[in-house]
Amino acid sequence: MTTTVNFQLPQQAPAASAVELRGVSREYGSKHATVRALNDVSLSFPTGTWTAVMGPSGSGKSTLLHCAAGLEQVSSGQVFLAGRDITFANDDQLTDMRRREVGFVFQSFNLIGSLTAEQNVALSLKLAGTRVDKSLVRTVLANVGLADRAKHKPRELSGGQQQRVAIARGMVTRPAVLFADEPTGALDTKSARVVLDLLRTMVQTQRQSIVMVTHDPAAAAAADSVVFLRDGVIVDHLARPSATVVAERLAHLEG
């Protein structure tokens, strides 16, 4: 039987939590056929840290990310995002919160093909109801190494460059937390390393908070901490492990 482990990730310095889950459970289905994707999870992601979330298929990784980001409502428990209790927020409140306090990066990039890199990034500001500051957009693109690609459309960019545009789009609103769902999953090894190095720089220089779901031990090893899920509960966590240690722990959970 799996044992629930509740803990707060180690902090490098005193800081408020970017995201906190308190006794969170998430169930799907009817009372006659219920699946509990998360089971009484309590977890804090301190501001200015990068946490990787791993586990076997069906362990609850994506559900944890969706609940933490306010994309799904929890069945029980509480969720705090940027210090605010969003557990009972309505759809309009959640939408506004996500546009202002949350950035998203996905495996599939999700860029709009008819827009340039600059326009894709500016779109986040428009959706957040913020005036589009072109100098800010250019600065953010420069920060991800794409100052000379601002006028290029996605089809004119490599996969790694598209993902960096997606990161710039997620960061331009200066979110409290960046949620990344398999951000290197569609990239070759070299491009993946560039993206991971960029995320590390954001944490170290801007104190950006990142929560990343990944199946890749090398990507997880780039984070400050790795949380492991199985059957909807937290079963372990490691601080700054090597890719080998992560792979061994994951293999044990899948065995």
Rank of each mutant, 00 (worst) to 15 (best):
T3R: 13
T3Q: 14
T3G: 11
V5F: 12
V5G: 00
N6I: 00
A13M: 00
A16R: 13
A16M: 01
A16H: 05
S17Y: 14
V19I: 15
R22A: 07
R22C: 06
V24H: 03
V24D: 01
R26D: 00
R26E: 00
R26L: 07
E27G: 00
S30Y: 02
S30W: 02
K31L: 12
K31D: 13
H32P: 00
A33R: 12
A33W: 01
A33S: 13
A33Q: 11
T34D: 00
T34C: 11
V35D: 01
V35R: 07
R36E: 12
R36T: 14
L38F: 11
L38A: 11
N39Q: 14
F45S: 09
F45A: 12
A52N: 06
A52E: 06
G55V: 04
P56V: 05
S57Q: 06
G58L: 06
K61S: 07
K61T: 08
S62D: 05
C67R: 02
G70K: 05
S75W: 03
G77C: 08
Q78W: 00
T87I: 04
T87S: 14
F88R: 14
A89M: 12
D91E: 15
D92L: 14
M97D: 09
G103T: 09
G103W: 12
F104K: 10
F104W: 08
Q107T: 04
Q107N: 09
I112V: 15
G113F: 12
A117R: 13
E118H: 15
E118Q: 15
Q119P: 02
Q119I: 02
A122F: 03
A122R: 03
L123A: 09
S124V: 03
K126G: 04
A128F: 08
G129P: 04
R131T: 13
V132M: 09
V137H: 10
V140K: 08
L141E: 03
L146Y: 06
L146N: 06
A150N: 01
E156Y: 08
L157E: 05
S158K: 05
G159R: 09
G160D: 01
Q162R: 15
Q163W: 03
R164E: 03
A166P: 07
V172K: 12
V172L: 10
T173F: 01
V177M: 10
F179A: 10
P183R: 08
A186C: 04
D188G: 04
T189Q: 15
T189A: 14
K190I: 09
S191V: 01
A192Y: 00
L199Y: 10
V203K: 14
V203C: 11
Q208T: 14
V211C: 12
M212Y: 08
M212P: 04
V213T: 01
T214I: 02
D216M: 04
D216N: 12
P217W: 04
A218P: 00
A220C: 08
A220S: 09
A221L: 07
A221N: 06
A223P: 02
S225A: 14
V227D: 01
V227T: 07
R230C: 04
I234W: 01
V235M: 05
S242V: 09
S242H: 09
A243L: 10
T244F: 10
T244M: 11
V246L: 12
L250K: 03
E254Q: 15
G255R: 13
